[in-house]
Every structure is written in structure tokens, then in C-alpha cells.
């Protein structure tokens, strides 16, 4: 966090990142001596689905986890550069707990808590001090995650009894319950079968009306189906970011074209 020293002034004003919900500026990241992200700068627009694609180990998941400061939980890591949300620096003068509340995350493997469906959804809201109507919040979030109809009669049953796809949508509902404005998804469909995947993608498309969604995926068809913009990463660098249609049909970089046409990766 050495770059862009601004005389210790408070976080940037809103005007600094007009149009961008999330702005990544000159981001570098290390796991120990391993330099996994190199000078990444990227703007992500509000109420769009942005897909991060690239071969394994290209840094796309690491970047995702830099956005909500999850990487800080791993010992021996280092970050330089800035992450701004609505123009506010998420690292300097920001509390990681607040950052993670604002920027929700859904993980690769469905990982509900060993509690009931109801408790899974409400827990995050409770720990953040939610004092409103719990039943109402749970229903609203489950509806947004397109799970309500399937579980409304067994809210107090164990979450582990749900199928993988249902568990993943429960994890989305749980994330929405803390009222984030950005939702990060790290290969959310990789453990799901095609039908559950289709359902999940449908849910994601519905969510973008209210949320800014960033999704890491290995599946280029998936990126094509659900994202408005796509960013292609290779070896820790951002190679190209553009409207999804543009990137998939007329990529401006040779490396991008090679990857999306299946010549490597």
C-alpha cells in the first residue's frame, strides 16, 4: 500500500471514479515471494455482471479476493495499489469488517453453516446488528436468490439437507442478507450440475438489477451467457477488458483470441 501517497489526505472524493462502481488502481499482490498480480487497473460498472476469465493461476480469483480483503486472512501476503468503491478507498482508513459487509462473496464450493436454512440467512445480518423483522428479511433474501418456493415449508430444517445447487443459492441469499452493493462470485457453478447451473445463472441475471456482480469463471460459455463485460487475465496481468460481446468476437489482443478460441489454457 505504498503507491499514490496523497499526503495522508482522506479517501478520494466521488468524482475521482466517475461511472465506476469498483475501481482497481495499479494493484500488485504477493503470496510470500510469489508475485501473483501485476499492476492491474480496472473499472467495474454498477449494475452489470463482470466476468473474470483466464487460465488457472492467472490471478483472477486472487483479484476477486483483494476486492473484499479476504486475502488479508492468509498469512504472509502483501498488497500495493488501491481498490475504490464509489470512490472510497477500501484499504486505507477502512475497516475490513465494514468492507466485507459491503462486498458480499459467494464461494466455489457451497459452504452453508451447519445450521438451519433460516439461521444461515439471518446469521450475517444478526452479527452486523440487524434489528428488524427477521422472518421478513429471510423471505426477501430467499426470494431474491430464487430459493424461497423450494424451502418455504422447511425453513427450520438443516441446510445440509439441500442439494448442491440449492445450497449455493442459499449462500447467495445469506450474502444478500447483509445488504451488500457488490457481490463477488468465485466460480459459483463449478460444483454444480448443468441444470443447477442454469438456475444459478438465471438468478445472477435477476440480481444485477440491484447489485454489481463480479464473477470468476472457467467456463467461457458461462461468461458469454451472463456477463456484460469480461476481463481476461493471464499470468497475473490484465490482458484485456471489454464488453463481453466485443471481447468474444473481436478481441483486440492476440493472447485473448488464442484463449477464447481454445488454442491454449
Amino acid at each position: 500500500m505504498e503507491t499514490n501517497e496523497r499526503n495522508g489526505s482522506p479517501p478520494a472524493a466521488r468524482g475521482a471514479s466517475e461511472g465506476a462502481k469498483v475501481r482497481v488502481e495499479n494493484l500488485d499482490f504477493w503470496y510470500g515471494a510469489n508475485h501473483v498480480l501485476r499492476d492491474v487497473s480496472l473499472d467495474i460498472r454498477a449494475n452489470e455482471v463482470t466476468a473474470f476469465i483466464g487460465p488457472s493461476g492467472c490471478g483472477k480469483s486472487t483479484l476477486l479476493r483483494c476486492l473484499n480483503r479476504m486475502n488479508e486472512l492468509i498469512p504472509d501476503t502483501r498488497l500495493e495499489g488501491r481498490v475504490l468503491i464509489d470512490g472510497r478507498d477500501m484499504y486505507r482508513n477502512a475497516d475490513p469488517v465494514m468492507v466485507r459487509r459491503r462486498i458480499g462473496m459467494v464461494f466455489q464450493k457451497p459452504n452453508p453453516f451447519p445450521k438451519t436454512i433460516f439461521e444461515n440467512v439471518i446469521w450475517g445480518a444478526r452479527v452486523n446488528g440487524y434489528k428488524g423483522d427477521e422472518a421478513e428479511l429471510v423471505e426477501r433474501c430467499l426470494r431474491k436468490a430464487a430459493l424461497w418456493e423450494e424451502v418455504k415449508d422447511r425453513l427450520h430444517a438443516q441446510a445440509y439437507g439441500l442439494s448442491g445447487g440449492q445450497q449455493q443459492r442459499l449462500c447467495i441469499a445469506r450474502t444478500l442478507a447483509v445488504a451488500p452493493d457488490v457481490v463477488l462470485m468465485d466460480e459459483p457453478a463449478s460444483a454444480l450440475d448443468p441444470i443447477a447451473t442454469a438456475k444459478l445463472e438465471e438468478t445472477i441475471l435477476q440480481l444485477k438489477e440491484r447489485y454489481t456482480i463480479i464473477i470468476v469463471t472457467h467456463n467461457m460459455q458461462q461468461a458469454g451467457r451472463i456477463s456484460d463485460r469480461t476481463a481476461f487475465f493471464y499470468m497475473g496481468e490484465l490482458i484485456e477488458a471489454d464488453a463481453t460481446e466485443q471481447l468474444f468476437t473481436r478481441p483486440s489482443r492476440k493472447r485473448t483470441e488464442d484463449y477464447i478460441t481454445g488454442r491454449f489454457g
Binding site: 486472512l73 466485507r100 459487509r101 464461494f107 459452504n111 453453516f113 452479527v127 445469506r174
Partner: peptide
């Protein structure tokens, strides 16, 4: 305890 439990709890903004 699976790491996913800690991660998802932290990701919800828990201390």
C-alpha cells in the same frame, strides 16, 4: 473445521 466456514463467516462481515 473446514476453512470454508471461517471464510464465509468473515465474508459476511463478521468479526
Amino acid at each position: 473445521i473446514p476453512e470454508g466456514i471461517r471464510e464465509s463467516a468473515f465474508a459476511l462481515g463478521a468479526t
